[in-house]
Design a protein around this nucleic acid. Structure first.
Length: 270
DNA sequence: CGCCGATATCCTGCAACGTG
DNA sequence: CACGTTGCAGGATATCGGCG
């Protein structure tokens, strides 16, 4: 950078070189102001009387400048005070808003003394469609302003799916009702917000979505594995096809019509 | 820090099925 | 038969972790 090189000489070795050039100028010109009050008369021709006159003039100008700066200073101080006051007020307002929010939340939490009155009906598919192009479930659950809560609920539901031993290869309707009931109960305990939905439809939607995604992911993974292993060994593929990996997720080998079977048959037909 | 692949989420469109 | 529900496939998008 040329700029940085130009800046460097200001300190250090070039001071001497600068000296010669700087000598004739007034040292106080740094302010850019005082230099202008330099007596116009050449020192050679000055009499003692005119010297005193010049001194007085300089003094007067400096005093004027001084009062000007003091005015400016007090004006800026006033402005700073004003800004500090505004900041304090803003902080106060934010605190008050936060407190009001907490009170409102508390109120909502306590208000389900009459839960039947507050229960939210499950929206129809048409109504869901009307909720927009993205985040329908989020909106349907009235959590569009609290995405963190929605994600927390979602995560809990996903964990509970594993905990209550849902079969990820089986359709939602084919899941054991006792397991689903257990899941709904645990989900409500973890997130009281879920109590607001009639018959736990929100939890059910999350479970359905999760199961669907799991099935799709497993299918995709399987297709990938098949493509990868087809060139190699066949034994591993056979194994995974039968037992289906048996991680919590992949139970398609057991129970009803598995997704894997579904695949083979349907795609063959298509 | 940006790129890339894996994974999750959500959406659209479609078909099958149940119900009034 | 119209309509709603359910589940699926496929695609778009978001998110996250690994890597150079």
């Amino acid at each position: 950078m040329p700029g940085s090189n130009e800046n460097q000489p200001l300190t250090g070795p070039t001071v001497a070189a600068k000296k010669s050039r700087a000598a004739p100028s007034n040292p106080t010109t740094a302010s850019g102001q005082v230099g202008t009050v330099r007596p116009p008369v050449a020192a050679k021709t000055m009499t003692p009387a005119s010297k005193t006159l010049n001194k007085n003039q300089t003094k007067q100008v400096l005093q004027e400048k001084n009062t000007k700066f003091e005015d400016e200073n007090s004006r800026l101080r006033a402005k700073i005070l004003q800004l500090e006051e505004a900041e304090r007020a803003a902080k106060l307002m934010a605190t008050e808003a936060e407190a009001a929010k907490k009170v409102a939340e508390e109120k909502i939490r306590n208000s389900h003394v009459d839960p039947m009155h507050e229960l939210m009906q499950k929206p129809t598919t048409a109504e869901m469609r009307d909720l927009g192009s993205r985040g329908r479930l989020l909106k349907a659950m009235k959590l569009e302003n609290n995405k963190a809560e929605y994600l927390a609920i979602q995560t809990s539901v996903h964990e509970l799916c594993s905990r209550v031993d849902l079969d990820f290869g089986v359709l939602y309707n084919a899941q054991p009702t006792s397991n689903l009931a257990k899941l709904f109960k645990l989900a409500r305990q973890a997130h009281p917000h879920l109590e607001k939905f009639q018959n736990d439809w929100a939890t059910a939607e999350l479970v359905k979505q999760f199961l669907q995604n799991k099935r799709k992911a497993n299918k995709k993974r399987k297709a990938h594995t098949i493509a990868g292993t087809e060139n190699n060994k066949r034994s591993r593929f056979d194994d995974s096809d039968n037992s289906d990996g048996d991680e919590v997720g992949d139970g398609s080998g057991s129970g009803e019509r598995g997704i894997a079977d579904d695949d083979d048959d349907d795609f063959g037909a298509c």
